[in-house]
């Protein structure tokens, strides 16, 4: 069992949790994720490991309440409670080396997973420019944390309530137009954002890596549920990824595969509304 040692609400529907998981904390590298189950008969949900502390044996996750399981985790679990199952670290770590100047983009929830990546890139001697984007100021989190791991930070909000008005892609375009030489782009966020970043950098010939969040079950290469066409070949996101060359991802297929359980997801939300007081 895995004890929750701290819980914070970072913004509306965004929760940060630190969990005791010494084995995972010890081996975790940037870019890896875990799979968590609230209770014995819960769903297995993948979440990125946003931070880890080897000494304390703790790991941190940041998640957005989107459906049944994330809502249950946010509402029913508090400090001192135990989570039924946490397994990881899963996936291949983000490839880190000295690239030069790297632009790391986090959109919404994607801001959490870019933190360990910025940190590792910086340690490897890169100049890290981070762009983080939110819908509005109220939803902003971890700005200081990301700032501490970057040499420069740009914040965008869709409504202009903080920083630059617009999407993260606008900030990226601006950097490029200002003539900044960019050696690599890493983008994590909603699929549509990652797709747009990849489409933007393709003509500029900047290597661009994204972190895919397909639907998963085991996370170990056993079920194939996470499979996706990358560069004309089927890959298992949980073991071959989750990081891939954004210019090779079949984004149309990604969109379809994310929607496979739309009907069922609605159904379980409604079914349990009364029982656990979901809105």
């Amino acid at each position: 069992m895995f004890e929750i040692v701290s819980k914070k609400t970072l913004a509306e529907n965004v929760v940060e949790m630190t969990i005791k998981a010494p084995r995972i904390a010890k081996t975790h590298k940037a870019g890896q994720f875990l799979i968590l189950m609230n209770y014995e008969h819960s769903e297995r949900i993948p979440l990125t490991i946003a931070d880890s502390d080897k000494e304390k044996g703790e790991i941190t996750i940041v998640f957005l309440v989107v459906g049944f399981s994330t809502k249950e985790l946010a509402e029913k679990f508090n400090v001192g409670d135990e989570i039924f199952s946490v397994v990881g670290p899963l996936g291949t770590p983000t490839h880190i080396e000295k690239f030069g100047r790297v632009v790391v983009i986090g959109g919404g929830l994607g801001v959490a997973p870019i933190y360990p990546i910025c940190k590792s890139l910086k340690e490897a001697g890169n100049e890290v420019i981070s762009i983080i984007g939110f819908r509005s100021k109220e939803l902003m989190f971890w700005k200081e944390k990301i700032e501490s791991a970057s040499s420069k930070i740009i914040v965008t909000t869709d409504d202009g309530s903080y920083g630059m008005k617009g999407f993260v892609t606008h900030a990226l375009e601006k950097l490029h137009n200002e003539g900044e030489k960019i050696d690599r782009v890493i983008a994590i966020g909603p699929p549509i954002m990652m797709k747009n970043v990849a489409k933007m950098t393709e003509p500029w010939n900047i290597p661009t890596w994204v972190s895919l969040n397909t639907i998963m079950v085991d996370g170990t290469g056993m079920c194939g549920g996470c499979r996706l066409e990358i560069g004309g070949e089927t890959k298992f996101v949980c073991v071959d990824g989750p990081d891939f060359d954004g210019h090779k991802v079949n984004w149309e297929e990604m969109e379809i595969r994310m929607k496979v359980y739309k009907i069922e997801e609605e159904k379980i939300k409604q079914e349990h509304q009364c029982k656990i007081g979901l809105k």
């Binding site: 609230n38 008969h41 819960s42 399981s69 249950e72 359980y261 069922e264």
Partner: peptide, 8 residues
Amino acid sequence: PKTATPIR
């Protein structure tokens, strides 16, 4: 939906 994992 008594358990949380869906199947088509």
